[in-house]
Write a protein that binds this DNA or RNA. Structure first.
Lengths: 202, 202
DNA sequence: ATTTATATAGACCGATCTATCTATTTTTAC
DNA sequence: GTAAAAATAGATAGATCGGTCTATATAAAT
């Protein structure tokens, strides 16, 4: 194992442990045994638990947005269709079919922001940045789809997405994703004149 | 101080500390000094930290639903208006004007469910019960308002509510409450034939 | 093959965690 | 006013926390 893959294994284990069991609740020891690595090695790569948490969240941000992007890109060839596909992706995620071997326990960034409530905390800031990136990607699609107010539509869809995820996490059911998706479809159709059936028939 | 108020002060302090700083991150000591009480007294009233957390969440559930109910009841005299008023209440809460001396750090039950991810955990169950009670209260209003599918409307509004709260917590802004409220108004109007302007003018 | 440099495992550190126990004070009862 | 009962503060226990240190093993270099 090169030193690069040691770091990768560490981040991978951190992602798994912190997502499944929380940040403060999980000791470094849990990560070490999950990564099958020793304390010294961890502190050679990261100067503190917080740094490891930040690295894990950076990786989560990367993987999550890549997964979502891939899913909606394959699901539809037009921007409006891709926005609608987001909520079908959420449903799969909630049912545990998005990230193999990883049980759904809500959005890792929401969970992180909850444990690190201070907005100035680096962890919290990273969570906010992730959400902003998601909104930005929605906005791009909304603009490409010809939405009247792309930023507004993006924020509305983001609210629906968060609501569906949190509800699923707390209640333990995936129906919220479908319900949010239904609302989203109406918002998208209303915001994109060309995509409205009425406009097409006129 | 009677023994009743000692318990009350303890629950009050627990609510404050755990909401502001998280459950695992807050030691018992922080609660003790906030309540100005000794260890022994705590363990006379609660047999463990978990029991104290459960008691604090029970109290939060009581206070929160009472606050929301009072707000929307005063805001409007009809069920549809009260449902719409929910989102104005959220905005006040996010801005820190709902619970005096308590900075907004998201929904305490969402935060609790995040730290206690196991659905069988008593804390998680309590969080789910709170959300169910909120949905039930929405459903009653929706039914009273003459909604076509009261349960569905209630769930939709709940998703919007959760989305607005989580977004506000992570992003640190109250605009999500207004945006969710705008969507909610459309859903409510669409679900209640008698309340639709078109229907009235027909 | 021997020296040098690096990575490792795991003992160890002080601090902090939840929870208990004891010694003392305060309250209650009459 | 005094005895019985209850509640208190604070010391303490035992476990675990994040983080460091040392002694050993491995790899690289010449």
């Amino acid at each position: 194992m090169s030193r690069l893959s040691a770091r990768e294994g560490l981040v991978d284990a951190a992602l798994e442990v912190f997502y499944a069991e929380g940040f403060h609740a999980s000791g470094i020891e849990r990560v070490l045994e999950a990564a099958n690595i020793s304390r010294t090695t961890l502190y050679r790569h990261f100067k503190s638990k917080d740094e490891l948490i930040l690295a894990a969240l950076e990786e989560r941000d990367r993987r999550y947005r890549e997964w979502l992007s891939n899913y909606i890109t394959r699901a539809s060839d037009n921007p409006a269709g891709r926005l609608k596909a987001v909520f079908r992706a959420l449903e799969l995620w909630i049912m545990g079919e998005a990230f193999p071997g990883q049980r759904f326990t809500g959005c890792m960034f929401v969970n992180a922001a909850a444990e690190y409530a201070d907005h100035e905390d680096a962890v919290h800031k990273l969570a906010a940045r992730h959400k902003l990136r998601i909104i930005d990607s929605f906005e791009k699609l909304a603009r490409a789809a010809g939405a009247i107010e792309p930023r507004l539509l993006a924020k509305q869809l983001a609210i629906l997405k968060e609501g569906a995820i949190v509800t699923a996490q707390v209640m333990g059911s995936a129906e919220s994703a479908r319900q949010a998706g239904d609302i989203a479809e109406r918002l998208i159709d209303d915001a994109i004149p060309a995509a409205r059936p009425e406009a097409l028939s006129a």
